[in-house]
Design a protein around this nucleic acid. Structure first.
Lengths: 241, 241
DNA sequence: TTAGTTGATGTGGTTGGACCACAGGCCTAG
DNA sequence: CTAGGCCTGTGGTCCAACCACATCAACTAA
């Protein structure tokens, strides 16, 4: 057992047992090193790992913002991991997109019309109406889709959606350059977004799922990916009637 | 920009540009430190992070197995991250199970009968027939479900399935103790597994998805989780007809 | 000649100490 | 009462050294 893993186990134990909760502060690195009878280096390596996983946040200085505190940001962890494995060509972009369609269409079919996240999505939609630049539009588009995922009320799906999006963000950005007519595309995306929201508020989950699948795959098809043929939503799509 | 992040960027760049591929060896820590003009400590912190993400593997000694080499194990990264966030109570077990049902039923609906992974699943099924102990049975069960996910041919879904499984492995193991009659449960699980395989080889993806959803939710319901009401497979289940 | 031993070499693993930058709180001089 | 500087504690970085380990080459003894 390597030393830093001992520290990892200790911290995970503190989290599991509830002695260290969200927002709580870890002992100072030097204190923790002495407490666990290891070097500060090993403590720092463990903290680095947990920081990369979105469990801790280290802040210098004094005061309430300083020290190493517990946070909860599963998206960054999953996103970084996915991005790196995409870099090693172990995870094809095609599979990323396919999985995104699967998760997001499920989320759309499950989204509760009364969810605050859905209201947020509607708000974002209005902002997109008065947004001409592609870059700002796409930024709002990301937030819209994340809000849509949140509306399903499943934290794991939300986190995975966010991480998938992050993993291929650069890729999607480059694809935008392939579009022949951005204004036309933007208009179509706007209409499709409205259709999705309408289906959800009409309690037609199947229709919403189908629209989401078409929406995502249509974008990538137009921009030139070629998502691999066939609807990734699979049975979810067929159920919409 | 913190120093170890510089090292992270450099390594990620090497991966993206293909100068560092799967199985390739990173320069020695001391050499890399000198190359990037940083301390060995910072290099090590970066390596630790990538190691936790399943991108690198560090080995002491000399020879082909030694040094820091590039691997591709997205499952550990996602699994560790999910497990930790479950520990902080930020990701409910209910959502984990729900997401697993979603992914696995989709995988079942997409599994290709001629896939090698499916043959592996069938092989595991035979082994489970001659397996009395609960622990060994569950170990085979895990591998069976992972093989099922692999048969869909989506690396991202496979990785996520594995990580979800890892994140709640301890939890599921504890649940097993709640079962009133293990032998009866094992017999039922065996029958359900066979039904799933049959549906896939019969090219009835919808049926396979439905059976998988029932299989997983049935287990957790019997063991006492209470998966939160309703089929998580949502539209996927309804499509089986 | 061959088999076994032994040392050199290079790898990651770990440690202690030192110094820096930063941010808040305290104390003193005005 | 205020403004400035000092004190303290935090993480951030670096260095030098040592250890454990695994391989390989040279050497030695049969």
């Amino acid at each position: 057992m390597r030393t830093h893993q001992l520290v990892l186990q200790w911290i995970e134990g503190q989290l599991s047992s509830g002695q260290l909760a969200l927002g709580g502060r870890l002992p100072a690195e030097r204190s923790l090193a002495e407490l666990l009878q290891v070097s500060r280096t090993s403590v720092r390596e463990a903290i680095r790992v947990l920081e990369a996983m979105g469990v801790l946040r280290a802040g210098v200085g004094s005061g309430p913002d300083a020290g190493t505190v517990v946070i909860a940001d599963p998206t960054t962890a999953l996103g970084s991991a996915l991005r790196l494995h995409v870099a090693t060509s172990h995870l094809p972009v095609k599979d990323i997109v396919e999985t995104r369609v699967l998760l997001e269409s499920w989320a759309a079919s499950r989204a509760r019309p009364e969810s605050p996240a859905l209201a947020e999505a509607a708000r974002l939609l209005e902002q997109m109406d008065s947004c001409a630049e592609a870059e700002a539009f796409l930024a709002l588009d990301v937030r819209f889709h994340l809000a849509l995922a949140d509306a399903a009320g499943n934290a794991v799906v939300s986190a995975m959606m966010g991480s998938l999006r992050e993993a291929i963000q650069d890729y999607a950005g480059r694809l935008t350059g392939n579009l022949p007519d951005w204004n036309a595309t933007a208009a179509r995306l706007r209409a499709e977004h409205r259709g999705i929201l309408t289906a959800i508020t009409s309690h037609d989950g199947g229709q919403a799922a189908q629209l989401v699948a078409d929406h995502i795959e249509g974008f990538y098809a137009e921009a030139g990916l070629g998502s691999g043929g066939g609807s990734a939503s699979g049975p979810a799509g067929r159920s919409s009637g």
